[in-house]
Design a protein around this nucleic acid. Structure first.
Lengths: 235, 235
DNA sequence: CGCTTAATTGAACATACTCAAAATTTGTGG
DNA sequence: CCACAAATTTTGAGTATGTTCAATTAAGCG
C-alpha cells in the first residue's frame, strides 16, 4: 500500500519550519535531499515496529503518527505523537538499538525517510543540529515524566480531562472548533491509561456536564476552564 | 550544613569512570577542574529544588541522590536516582529552564558542581561529549517510558517486585547480600506509585512468601527468579 | 531516656476493571 | 446506493485492587 517518490517538495523547500533541521544551511539541506525518500501511509498502517532494527529516521511531512509501546500483558500505551515536521525513530538510530516503540499512522500521512549515514554526517557537521536534538530529547523526557506522575497520582477522570486538553494544545482545532485529531475511545484510553469502557463512561460524563460535545470521534471542548479544573492542573 | 572544598581528588584523577566526561582529553578535563567546586550533603539534604533556576550542573562524586517531582496533590514521585559519576540538573542547563525536579541526598554524599559556562564550552569543543549527553538523555527517556507503562498497566504487587529488582540491578548488593540502598517504605512507594501502607503490606507478603527478607530498611532478595516472575517481566 | 519519626495493622470505602450483551457506526463489495 | 459484515461504542452488573483514615507499635536519635 505504500506509494513511493510522490510529489513532495524538495527538503530545501519544505514548509515544515518547526523541524530540528531548520537551522541547517542550504548545503546541509542538500545532504538531506539526496539521502531521503518519501512514502505514503494510510491511516492505521504501521511505519515501524517495536523491536525491529532501524536504518534511518523518519520525518512526518503531513499527517499524524502515534508512537506506542506494548506492556507485558499486550496492552498498548501511547507514549507520544508526531505531526508534520517532527522526527520519528531518531532515538534508536542514535543509540544503534532496536526501535523502542511502534509508530502507526493515525491519519493518512506522507512520511520522509532519511538514511542513518546522512543523519550522522549532519550531526557531525552541525553543532546546532546536535543541540536541537538534545533539546528535543529533553522535551520528550519532560513530557514523559509529567505523564508518569499524572498516571501515578491522578484519577482516570482527571487524566482523561488532561488528555483532552493536551490533544487540543498539541493539534489545535478544526474549522468547527473540534480537536483536530480523531481517535478511537480505545486510543484515548491508551493515552490516559484507562480501559475503553471507563474512557467511554468518562467522556459521556463530560458530555452530560456540558464540558464537551461528542459527535462520534469528533470532540468539541465547550468549557476549557472547567476541563482544566477537572484535570486538576495548576500551572 | 555544607562543607565546601573538601579533599576530593582533582577531576583529572576522578575514579568515576562511568561518567560522560570520560571521553575528554586532559586539556578539556582541566576546564572542569577550574570550573568546579565540591560540597558535602548529609542524608536528607536537598541539592536543588524543583522550580529554582540552575547555574550549573552537579555530578555525584560519592553517595546517592534521588530525583523526585511533586504531583498536584503534593505527593512525591521519584523519577530517577543518581550515583557516583552521574550528572544532575544538566537537562535544565541545556534548556535554560528551571529545575524540573528536586534532588535529595539519600545517603551522605560528596557532590561536585560545574558552572554552566564551562559545561557549554566543553559541549562546543567536544563532539563526543555532546554525543554522550544525547545517549544519556535517550537512556533516561527509555527508562521513563518503561516506568510509565509499568505504572499504567501493572498491579502494585508487580510494580513493587519490579522496583526491588531495579534497585538491585542499579545499586548492587552489600557485603551481606542486601540491596545496597536503604530507603523508607514511603520512598519505595514513591518509586512504584503506591502508598506507604500498600508498600508495607506488599513487602510483608514477599517476606512471608520467602522471596525477600526484611531487616528494617535492609532488604535481602532471596529468590530473584520468583521475584522476576511476580514482577511479570519477560525480557 | 524521652521524643519524634517511621512502620505496621485493621476496617471501611471507592475507583476503575472485567465480562457479557446490546446498539451503533464504519467499511466493503455488489 | 444499499446490504451485509466487521469493528467500535455503549450500557449494566459484579468484583477486586488499593486507598484512606485511625490507632498502635517499633525504631532512630539527641
Amino acid at each position: 500500500m505504500r506509494t513511493s517518490r510522490l510529489c513532495i517538495p524538495d527538503c530545501k523547500d519544505c514548509k515544515n519550519n518547526n523541524s530540528v533541521f531548520c537551522s541547517l544551511n542550504q548545503n546541509e539541506k542538500e545532504v538531506i535531499s539526496t539521502g531521503k525518500s518519501s512514502n505514503y501511509f494510510k491511516k492505521g498502517q504501521v511505519v515501524f515496529y517495536e523491536g525491529n532494527h532501524p536504518h534511518g529516521l523518519f520525518c512526518v511531512y503531513s499527517g499524524k503518527v502515534k508512537i506506542s509501546k506494548l506492556g507485558e500483558g499486550g496492552k498498548e500505551q501511547i507514549v507520544r505523537f508526531a505531526k508534520s515536521g517532527e522526527m520519528l525513530g531518531y532515538r534508536s538510530i542514535l543509540n544503534n538499538e532496536a526501535y523502542n516503540a511502534t509508530a502507526t499512522a493515525v491519519e493518512d500521512s506522507y512520511i520522509c525517510f532519511l538514511k542513518s549515514d546522512n543523519f550522522f554526517q549532519l550531526l557531525r557537521e552541525s553543532n546546532s543540529l546536535s543541540f536541537n536534538v538534545m533539546k528535543l530529547l529533553s522535551s520528550d523526557l519532560r513530557s514523559s515524566e509529567k505523564q508518569l506522575i499524572s498516571i501515578a497520582q491522578k484519577s482516570v477522570r482527571e487524566r482523561i480531562a488532561e488528555t483532552l486538553l493536551r490533544l487540543r494544545t498539541r493539534f489545535g482545532l478544526d474549522n468547527e472548533g473540534a480537536i483536530n485529531l480523531k481517535l478511537s475511545r480505545q486510543e484515548i484510553g491508551d493515552i490516559a491509561g484507562a480501559t475503553s469502557e471507563t474512557t467511554i463512561r468518562t467522556l459521556a460524563d463530560f458530555n452530560q456536564e456540558r464540558v464537551i460535545v461528542l459527535q462520534g470521534k469528533r470532540i468539541l471542548i465547550l468549557d476549557v476552564n472547567k476541563l482544566t479544573q477537572i484535570a486538576n492542573i495548576k500551572d
